[in-house]
Amino acid sequence: MKFKQNHFRKTPEKLLFELSQIKSNTVIVSTKISVSTEDLTDGKYKKWNINSIKDLDDKSVIDFIPSKKEGPTSKINLVGKTVILRDLPKEDKSWNITGPNFGDYSKGTHTATITKPVFQKEYELPRDIHLSIKQIDREQSKDEIQLQIWIQEPLHRDEKNFHDDLLFSLNLLQESTGNCGIISTSQAENDKLIEEKQKDWEFLPVGTGNIRSKILQKLGNKKEIPESSQERIDYFTNPPFEIVGHINGINSFERYIGLELPNGIIILENFNYGNAIFVFKKDFDSFSKMTRGELIKRKSSDTERIPHKKNWKINLETVLGFNRK
């Protein structure tokens, strides 16, 4: 369905009516659009991972994650969101700063820990939702190709956050294509839009698997890796504290790698788009059973967010209660 605006503050009435006509408990956000073969040839849809018409000829499914420049929902999808809870009491928060000795950097530097009361926060993880594309049919004129674009993850009407998740998914599709819609999962299955659900995480005990190789795969095996990313790769490959294993994100969490500590704490990192490290007070068995929605919307008491600033390693180790000797 075509809409003039790029972003919705609430679900449009037309789509709510469309939803009311669907009897199934689960739905899929999906739309169909026509694109010109000329635009495809000119590379207009490279941002959708379509480099040429040939990419669509075999009707294979192409996945892409919308750029954060597409709109506010696309940005949250990639980098997450922080909500300041101004209606709750402040809590003491500690962080570290590095400064010169006696005001002179030539005499070296030192790190000091500062503690002050701050507002509590809730952190929303990047959702990393992919949009899937496939060719439906070539128009009779041969000048246009009809595409189906959809989000594979079904939305369940009986879930508490259904309408929030529906609006998020509609906006993600709308910001990228200018179109959005809703179909039943039975229709999606008939159209072969839904893949069989697979697990999202695998646990790799210490000493098993090539962790550095898995991280580089998540980065697309780039030949040149920024120094800041290389530092994090080295840290997660060989952390300075005891761990019982690595956690490898797969399928919908394929961009993530994690560490589990002996006390059950989970440290999660996204090497592609993550602008922070997340610390979860959960053992892997409990963590791996959490749905995407549950994981994304963890409360602040269960989650710590460590931005990738200059002292990120010290701040992370402070949260963990780990002291370097």
Results as ranks from 00 to 15, higher is better:
Q21R: 13
Q21L: 10
I22S: 11
S24I: 03
N25P: 10
N25S: 15
T26N: 15
T26Q: 15
I28L: 08
S30I: 02
T31H: 02
T31E: 05
T31Q: 04
T31L: 00
K32W: 03
K32H: 00
I33F: 07
I33Q: 08
S34L: 01
V35Q: 06
S36A: 06
S36L: 01
S36Y: 08
T37C: 12
T37Y: 08
D39K: 15
L40V: 15
T41W: 00
K44S: 07
Y45P: 13
Y45V: 08
K46A: 10
K46G: 14
K46N: 15
K47M: 01
K47C: 07
W48K: 08
W48F: 15
W48C: 13
W48H: 15
N49Y: 01
I50E: 06
I50N: 10
N51D: 05
S52T: 13
S52P: 10
I53N: 13
I53G: 13
I53E: 12
K54L: 04
D55Q: 07
L56N: 10
L56V: 11
D58F: 04
D58C: 04
D58A: 09
K59W: 04
K59R: 11
S60C: 04
V61Q: 10
V61N: 09
V61R: 11
I62T: 10
F64S: 06
P66I: 01
P66A: 01
P66L: 02
K68A: 14
K69F: 06
E70M: 07
G71K: 05
G71M: 01
G71R: 05
P72S: 14
P72I: 01
P72D: 02
P72N: 06
S74T: 04
S74G: 07
K75Y: 13
K75M: 09
I76A: 12
N77E: 14
N77T: 14
L78V: 12
V79L: 01
G80H: 09
G80N: 08
G80W: 01
K81R: 12
K81S: 09
K81V: 00
K81F: 03
K81N: 15
T82F: 02
I84W: 04
L85Y: 10
D87Y: 12
D87W: 03
P89R: 11
K90W: 05
E91W: 02
D92P: 14
K93F: 09
S94E: 06
W95T: 14
W95K: 11
W95Y: 15
I97R: 13
I97M: 01
T98V: 11
T98K: 13
G99Y: 05
P100G: 09
N101G: 09
N101Q: 10
F102G: 12
F102E: 14
F102P: 03
G103F: 04
G103S: 10
D104C: 08
D104G: 07
D104V: 08
Y105Q: 10
Y105R: 14
S106M: 03
K107V: 06
G108I: 09
T109F: 00
T109D: 00
T109E: 00
H110Q: 05
